[in-house]
Design a protein around this nucleic acid. Structure first.
Lengths: 217, 217
DNA sequence: CTCCATTGGATAGCGATGCTATCTGCTAGC
DNA sequence: GCTAGCAGATAGCATCGCTATCCAATGGAG
């Protein structure tokens, strides 16, 4: 399979494929001559993965690179692949802010109290702290307990997901399922919440349904 | 309050504030002279909102503009503000693809079967269809039923959230809570799922826990 | 064996986004 | 009056994700 075939089958322009090769997120083809190479099904599959991560997951190409490097590392334990996927999806928080440090401690204590066992450097801890800081900056006087309402559901969802992946019989399938599942179902979950919000908003927020009009704030 | 005060209190540089004014996402101050204006608490609050939407929600500035325009429109029913927030958060799907159209029909049927009542142009419908197409492109032979596992939880979450907002006594507070809640708790939810995933991954995916090593794919 | 489209590789450019810097009058407040 | 600060306009800049061009080498058709 030459680059033009790969381009035609994947729908991705040749210059873009060359760009991905340069960026190291698509492995080089097998050389057949100093300036010729052939590509296989693995390349095609990789291209589809890249597009899903970028289009569905909203990852930057550098995040994609971190993910595919984790995928390619056969030595890496499955738990670490999950960690890499999580880190790639999260934009790092500056964490120099004092409020953030305080919030982070509260979040850590809350996680502890929940009985969740997660590494101290999990980026989701900072993400949670950041949302707390954001809410407070907007005048909401809230603590980590606002997350209680969501945590039980997420725990249940994650439990089911992980049980599914753990039941798979090949490492490769488990790894890819882990990464894709994290990214794709995140998007799906968010979309489902919005659909449910809209569904419930009709009876609750519709015209004359308890919320007063603009004159009495 | 002059622009320098606004800058100092919000921590946002003057040129950036001027940029937001130009972009129309921060309303102009009240003129006191042809080239002088003063700003109030509303401006400060707006700046914090912008930063939350951008930093926490990952919105582009044009999406922020759509949101604040909805906030400023006192005529707009609360349900529509929710819709605007949802549209602003979703990057529009091209929808010219044939697979996408098919998936969209399946998603619509699934939503119908669930008994959810949402407008036909809700962007979350397309988002769900897009995830379905993405999964299929990667070889997963799945239908909208993969979402079943998540839908019940999201329904429950949305129900609680909407009941909370509907109980508020001022439109303004309800509107802002709606927008902020949609954006901020989305991020929090995703972070919580990841924490829960990591928590459950230890016993299930840890070394020698059912998933074989790299040699037996 | 010739010819020319195609290839890999390198370099440069481009359009969008989100600022940032500079300039030009004008004004506020000492 | 003087100087710091202001509004508004214009221009520049860094990053991202491509896209276009150029080059020498190649490979397959004839």
């Amino acid at each position: 399979m030459r680059i033009s075939d790969l381009s035609r089958e994947s729908g991705i322009p040749i210059p873009t494929i060359k760009f991905y090769l340069r960026e190291g997120i698509l492995p080089a083809g097998s050389r057949t001559a100093p300036n010729q190479a052939t590509y296989g099904e693995a390349h095609h599959r990789r291209l589809r993965l890249i597009r899903v991560l970028v289009d569905v997951g909203g990852l930057t190409l550098s995040a994609v690179r971190r993910v595919v490097e984790a995928l390619e590392d056969d030595e890496l334990p499955l738990t670490d692949v999950l960690g890499v996927a999580h880190r790639a999806l999260e934009k790092p928080v500056p964490s120099t802010d004092h409020d953030l440090v305080v919030a982070r401690l509260e979040v850590d204590a809350w996680i502890e109290a929940r009985g969740w066992h997660v590494t101290v450097d999990a980026p989701a801890r900072d993400a949670l702290a950041a949302t707390l800081v954001a809410l407070r900056g907007l005048g909401w006087q809230v603590g980590p307990r606002v997350f209680d309402r969501y945590a039980g559901h997420m725990d249940e969802i994650a439990r089911t997901e992980l049980a599914y992946v753990a039941g798979m019989d090949s490492r490769e399938a488990a790894v890819e399922t882990t990464v894709i599942g994290t990214v794709v179902f995140e998007r799906a979950m968010v979309a489902l919440r919005r659909l449910a919000q809209e569904h419930h908003s009709r009876p609750l927020l519709g015209p004359r349904a308890g919320v007063a009009s603009s004159a009495d704030g």
